[in-house]
Simulated scan of single mutants.
Amino acid sequence: MLGWAAQQKTNNLDCQKNSDVKMKEITKKYLDQLDLAISRGAEFGLNRKSFIGSGRVSDGVMKKAIEVLESDRQKIMHGLPDDISTYCVTLSARAFISLNLFGIPADMVIGAAYWQGQCVFPCAAEDLKLEMLNPGDESSPIRMHAWVSLGGDAIIDLTLPHFLAINYDAPKGFFGGIIANRVKEIKLAGIEYEPIVVGSEYIGKVNPPDPILELTERRARRQRLVDFGFI
């Protein structure tokens, strides 16, 4: 029979093992949803190939992405009010542009979001498809959420923590906060995501202009600066 200390250690190891298994299941669930959301673009009539996939993104890429967003913070936040909780599309589009402009593949994701198990942005694939066919139809509004994916389980969200702090019982530290982490770490904070469709092209159809237009313009502008020797 094991002594108390040994038994306690065994119990702790079992708990850690169960926790690790659960986190892996949560990550796999998200990656499966992301794969489906990427493939769903064709069903929605989206023509542009997604900039991301479900393969793992390195910690180095995540660190660089955070550095880029910090560097571009003023530009990304320009012209927006202090309460940015309802600007998920605008801020995700700006982050999408900044990251791709600096050579970090990223794409916009539209879907549902959960706080402590409660769906705070409830929408389904059929809702998003109908919205694309009838954009801005006030007779059947939907509550979709937008965030940015670097691919795999790496998520960037510039508005959800702030939204939760204002509208739900989230910690005060969520005010003005952003998410730049992996799915399993985000889950530990009580937040979950359900990707439904991937691609800024979808946003271009329901809330034009398509962010790819600004990205293309800024890339061309940068190339002209390179050509003239300014960069």
Rank of each mutant, 00 (worst) to 15 (best):
V148S: 01
K184D: 15
P171V: 09
P161A: 06
N167G: 08
P141T: 09
D32E: 13
G45D: 10
V68W: 01
R222Y: 12
A106Q: 02
F96H: 02
A124G: 09
M1R: 07
T27S: 13
A65D: 01
D35W: 03
C88M: 08
F175Y: 15
S50Y: 05
A93M: 02
F102P: 00
C15T: 12
F228E: 11
M77D: 12
P141F: 07
E201I: 09
L128Y: 00
G173N: 11
Q8L: 14
L101C: 04
E126P: 00
K22R: 14
P171F: 07
P141A: 11
R224G: 02
L188Y: 06
D137Y: 08
K75L: 12
R182M: 10
R94A: 07
G3S: 15
E43R: 12
G190M: 11
K184C: 10
S85K: 09
K28N: 14
I104R: 03
D59S: 12
S71T: 12
G103F: 10
K75Y: 08
N18W: 07
F96W: 06
A95M: 06
A125L: 15
K129L: 04
I178Y: 06
I76P: 02
K205F: 12
G3H: 10
D137K: 11
A189I: 05
G136S: 09
L46E: 08
G190P: 02
D137C: 08
A37H: 03
K64T: 11
N100S: 07
Q116S: 09
N47G: 13
A165V: 06
D127G: 04
F163K: 04
A95K: 02
S71R: 15
S98D: 00
A146C: 15
G151V: 05
V57M: 07
G204N: 08
K9D: 14
F228I: 14
S19H: 13
I76R: 01
A106L: 03
D35G: 11
P171L: 08
G152N: 04
L13I: 12
G199I: 05
L164Y: 01
D107W: 06
F96Q: 01
A93H: 01
L91D: 00
L31N: 03
Y193V: 06
M144V: 07
P208W: 10
H145K: 09
S200N: 10
S54E: 06
L34V: 07
A124L: 05
Y87R: 12
E131Y: 03
G111H: 02
L130Y: 08
M108Y: 01
E214I: 05
Y202E: 00
A165D: 04
G111Y: 01
K129M: 07
A42D: 13
F175L: 14
K187A: 15
L99H: 04
S92H: 04
G60Q: 14
A180V: 04
A42I: 11
G173R: 08
I26F: 03
S149E: 03
R56D: 13
F44A: 15
D107R: 02
M77H: 06
S92Y: 07
D137S: 07
S71C: 11
R143S: 13
Y30T: 03
R219D: 04
I52G: 00
F44W: 10
I186L: 10
D210W: 08
L91Y: 04
